[in-house]
Design a protein around this nucleic acid. Structure first.
Length: 477
RNA sequence: GCUCCCAUCGUCUAAUGGCUAGGACGUCGGGCUUUCAAUCCGGCAAUAGGGGUUCGAUUCCCCUUGGGAGCACCA
């Protein structure tokens, strides 16, 4: 039994998005599950659309997710001679030929075929050109492209996920495999690399199923054995295709929007696949153990943002405040700047311990990392609120004033300024907790909803707490 | 237009030719609670439709409908 070798082969024509990332994940899981090798191949044969920037984005985000590849990534643009040799061999053996038809002619024929209700494909006109005719055309400098001379056969794709499907050669036609000897196209470069890289399982999106038929012809013409194919169902948006316009964000965007790699991985793996057990919460390690290609769903999965958010909340809550602080510092730099801005502007500085406490309070109440301070912004900004907000239920303004005065006295000479001690002391003030804690919360936060006021008081410290209580008292007549 | 693929709660999915079709997210209601969050308990919610095969079909077959993908000198 050969070693399992799989590849993730994106073209660097855009940022890594969720659909691609899931394809990478499934390849990775399959490789790890089988103690195999996971390879990254950059398919940059289209020079005009490929960009280094996108290549970097893809690699950085794969690494961020933890989908490490085992070998150095290869670029198709650096393997031109490999494809050239293959093209020349195919032409030599009359398995491929130069086609001199112009684009205009082809467009016209395509239209005609469509009108007749036929699938649009090349007629094979130039296949019958003699060597002399070809040479004459070349010497005249007539432009050409290279087509595969597709034999009249029916291809059966045996897909590990989708099962068997049949594809007739006459409906495919002699497709183009290269623009020239040194400019290979996808349908040629991909099977060649898969062969020479010893890929045993081609795992990719099901939008490539029809391409598999074409590529199988290349394998046959080259006399190579076929790899296994597994075409993954596509991820769809609520209204059909998951497109950039429909909120399909790049991984980079999810990252700066405050999503955690753990959440994204866990969410993605459940799109089209499910573990045997009902336990959906999985680390990468658990996924590897549980993964099974045959259990992958055939139908496309619709992306459910709310579940992603739920996973994100879950993993955020599980993280230690220290880890979160590091994540904020390292991955969300712009946010650190923003927070530092708050602090400088308001002359509010917190020690590391105080920051950790703030994060602990914030992380319980946020969907995403970048929103972690949103619910505890009162620590960083000057806030104001209407006096009415201080009033708890049916109490009068005077009674609330009394409550705050009692709180002030109780806290003023509290020896041990810790949240549990603060709570303990305030608990004794009244049987109606709301009567004590509600006005204090509003005094300390300016908000009707917040973490417990005694926790906040601990971070603020005695002086700031008393100051804020005095501000509240001044609002009450 | 042609080819291929697909079809279980709103969404992701589990299950078996045979108990009340299970779980998760969401949603609704309740408990806890000073608020929010968290958490706990409970409810609503699905086998697209029509034919077969069978004692029996969500499961196997056919048709319809619906959805998706492909048909580039992109990948």
């Amino acid at each position: 039994m050969n070693e399992v070798r799989v590849r993730f082969a994106p073209s660097p024509t855009g940022r890594l998005h969720l659909g691609n990332a899931r394809t990478a994940l499934f390849n990775y899981l399959f490789a790890r599950k089988n103690n195999g090798v996971f390879i990254l191949r950059i398919e940059d044969t289209d020079k005009s659309r490929s960009k280094k920037e996108y290549e970097d984005d893809i690699i950085n985000n794969l690494l961020w997710l933890g989908l490490n590849f085992n070998e150095d990534p290869i670029r198709q643009s650096e393997r031109i001679s490999l494809y050239q040799t293959a093209v020349e061999k195919l032409i030599e053996e009359k398995k491929a030929y130069r086609c001199f038809c112009s684009k205009e002619e082809l467009d016209l024929k395509r239209q005609e075929q469509l009108v007749r209700g036929e699938p649009p494909r090349y007629s094979g006109l130039c296949r019958s050109l003699s060597v002399e005719q070809v040479n004459e055309n070349i010497s005249k400098g007539k432009p050409y492209i290279i087509r595969l001379a597709v034999p009249d056969q029916t291809i059966v794709i045996k897909d590990l996920i989708l099962g068997e499907s049949k594809w007739e050669a006459k409906l495919i036609g002699d497709f183009i495999i290269a623009k020239s000897e040194t400019e290979p196209l996808y349908h040629l470069a991909t099977p060649i690399d898969d062969h020479y890289q010893g890929i045993t399982h081609v795992i990719r999106g099901s939008d490539h199923l029809a391409n598999a038929a074409k590529q199988i012809f290349v394998y046959k013409m080259m006399g190579w054995p076929l790899p296994e194919f597994a075409h993954l169902p596509l991820i769809l948006g609520l209204e059909g295709k998951l497109s950039k316009r429909q909120g399909a964000k790049s991984l980079s965007e999810y990252r700066t929007d405050g999503f955690l790699a753990e959440a994204l991985l866990n969410f993605m793996v459940l799109l089209g696949w499910h573990p045997k057990t009902d336990d959906e919460l999985m680390s990468l390690k658990t996924m590897i153990n549980e993964f099974n290609l045959a259990a992958i769903q055939k139908k496309g999965a619709i992306f459910n943002q709310k579940k992603l958010i739920w996973f994100n909340r879950y993993y955020l809550r599980k993280k230690e405040p220290r880890e979160i602080l590091e994540l904020i510092d390292s991955t969300i730099e712009y946010f650190k700047v923003e927070v530092d801005g708050y602090r400088a502007k308001n002359n509010l500085f917190f020690s590391d311990n105080e920051m950790l406490k703030i994060i602990e309070l914030g992380k319980e109440r946020t969907d995403t990392l970048n929103q972690i301070f949103a619910n505890v912004e009162f620590f960083f900004i000057h806030f104001d609120y209407p006096a009415d907000l201080l009033i708890w239920q049916q109490y009068s303004s005077l009674e609330i004033k009394k409550s705050l005065e009692q709180t002030r006295v109780a806290l003023f000479d509290l020896d041990d300024w810790r949240s549990d001690k603060i709570k303990e002391k305030l608990d004794r003030l009244s049987d109606d907790k709301g009567y004590v804690f509600w006005p204090l919360r509003v005094a300390l936060t300016g908000k009707p909803a917040s973490p417990p006021p005694f926790e906040i008081a601990e971070v603020f410290g005695r002086a700031k707490t008393i100051e804020l209580i005095d501000r509240a008292l001044a609002k009450l007549k």
